[in-house]
């Protein structure tokens, strides 16, 4: 009897912890965002600067995700298929953006491309200003989300049966055709899952972006930095309203991913 009581209270404690820590805060944001009714919520969200920030974030995150889809596919392919010096080293390096604090990632890019480095100066002299401009935001997003596509594709590439490819070649298919008809379909779930993950992470990114974006309202101010600005200027309602939009978008992405690809993609 005593043991059952202990077990029951332990279970309740775990569920309570879960509810208080995860579910309650999410409700708090929705509650605050909509607390004054629909009208103020709509006003906060359709504020020109808020709209600009949201739109800019979606565009740049999409671009970063697509770049990562290309870079990640190539990287995963080379790391799995080819044997070359430094392969294991590069393979461990893939996870570095996960392990590195995002603020440090942002600082690194700022130092490399900023006005004080030779690379930044060279690029500026030929008319390419990167730091404090949208390209820098995309670079930061690509850096932070780099591991997603690679890590989602690697297991699929390893499981790929070489016999299928060989059969395709035997039947006279070219390399390009084999890639398109045999390899790509097998990789597609991992590629889509990884790209969606990268997209949702890029939408939410703050630390790496805030240091190098310049955060000019209407031009280089992304949604998460906009929310931060609203919190800093004691405007939690507007912050919550924009958060509601961003959160809803992220949740939709998350549930789409879970529905489409099951557990394996979300890590």
């Amino acid at each position: 009897m005593n043991q059952r009581l202990l077990q029951g209270s332990l279970r309740s404690l775990v569920l309570l912890y879960f509810a208080v820590l995860v579910a309650l805060p999410v409700f708090a944001v929705y509650g605050k965002g909509l607390s004054l009714g629909w009208e103020p919520f709509w006003q906060s969200v359709t504020h020109p600067l808020a709209l600009d920030a949201l739109w800019l974030t979606v565009q740049l995150a999409l671009l970063a995700a697509l770049i990562n889809a290309a870079l990640g596919t190539l990287t995963a392919w080379v790391l799995v298929r080819y044997c070359f010096p430094g392969r294991r080293f590069l393979n461990s390096l893939v996870d570095l953006p996960f392990a590195l604090p995002t603020a440090v990632g942002g600082l690194m890019i700022l130092l490399l491309l900023g006005p004080n480095s030779w690379l930044g100066q060279t690029l500026t002299s030929i008319g390419w200003e990167i730091v404090y401009r949208p390209p820098a935001i995309v670079i930061a997003m690509v850096f932070v989300t780099f591991p997603f596509v690679v890590r989602n594709l690697q297991p699929l590439l390893e499981e790929l049966d070489p016999a299928e490819e060989e059969a395709s070649y035997t039947l006279g298919a070219s390399k390009a055709l084999t890639f398109r008809r045999v390899i790509l379909p097998a990789l597609l779930p991992g590629l889509c899952g990884g790209t969606l993950l990268a997209f949702s992470r890029a939408l939410a990114e703050f630390g790496a972006v805030v240091l190098i974006a310049g955060n000019l309202p209407g031009q280089t101010l992304v949604a998460s930095v906009y929310i931060f600005g609203q919190v800093e200027s004691y405007n939690p309602q507007a912050a919550a309203a924009v958060s509601v939009v961003l959160l809803t978008l992220s949740f939709l992405l998350l549930f789409t991913m879970n529905a489409l690809f099951g557990r394996r993609t979300a890590r």
Binding site: V22, A23, P25, V26, A28, V29, T102, S200, L203, A204, E205, F206, G207, A223, S224, V225, I227, F228, V231, P236, A239, A240, S243, L246, L247, S250, F251, L253, L254, A266
Partner: peptide, 13 residues
């Protein structure tokens, strides 16, 4: 859920 939440929003919560 926390994976999908921007850290800033996590703090705001």
């Amino acid at each position: 859920l926390p994976f999908a939440v921007s850290p800033v929003i996590g703090g705001l919560m």
